[in-house]
Amino acid sequence: LDERLPEAPQVLAYASTLIIMAGLFQLVDGIQAVAAGLLRGLKDARVPALLALISYWPIGFGLAWTMAFPLGFGGVGVWSGFVVGLSAAAIMLTTRFYLLVKREMKAAGKA
């Protein structure tokens, strides 16, 4: 990027925001991927698939579209919606794993 160009500061500011959003995306994507893998290890696939579907489409995509276009946030809105969708998946999948393990421990008489 040629810093002598008049639009360089705006481009750098916008890119900085997108890089932060990409970092958050990577963080929550890693958490939800680990949680999905843990549930697969417990042979739990149907409910996690439904939770992921809800997180990615109505929550993530819906929010990304709404923030990007009607609310006018553009690319930052798209990434924000995706981060919220993945965060929802991470929270729901991690919670499901915790509850299944807790139930198994109780059934085994260890809790």
Rank of each mutant, 00 (worst) to 15 (best):
E7W: 13
S16Q: 13
A89N: 05
M92Y: 05
G30N: 10
A107C: 08
G72A: 08
G30P: 05
V47P: 07
G81T: 01
V76N: 08
L5N: 02
E7N: 12
P9V: 00
F69D: 12
Y56I: 02
M92A: 14
L86W: 01
L93Y: 03
I19V: 15
I31A: 09
V11M: 07
V76P: 10
A52D: 07
G109P: 01
D2L: 06
V83K: 03
L42F: 11
P48K: 07
I20V: 15
E7V: 13
L63E: 01
A13W: 05
G23H: 04
A88T: 02
I20D: 12
G74N: 08
G23Q: 07
K102L: 02
F97E: 04
Q32R: 06
L18P: 02
D44G: 07
L63H: 05
P58F: 00
I91A: 06
T17D: 14
R96C: 03
A15H: 06
V101K: 15
G81L: 04
A33T: 09
T95R: 08
I91M: 07
A90V: 04
A88I: 00
G30H: 10
D2I: 06
T95I: 11
F25K: 09
P6G: 04
P9N: 04
F82T: 01
W57R: 02
Y98S: 13
T95V: 10
P70E: 06
F82W: 08
G109K: 04
W65K: 10
G37F: 08
I20P: 07
K106C: 10
L51S: 02
R46G: 12
Q10F: 11
Y14S: 15
A36E: 05
L51Y: 04
G60F: 00
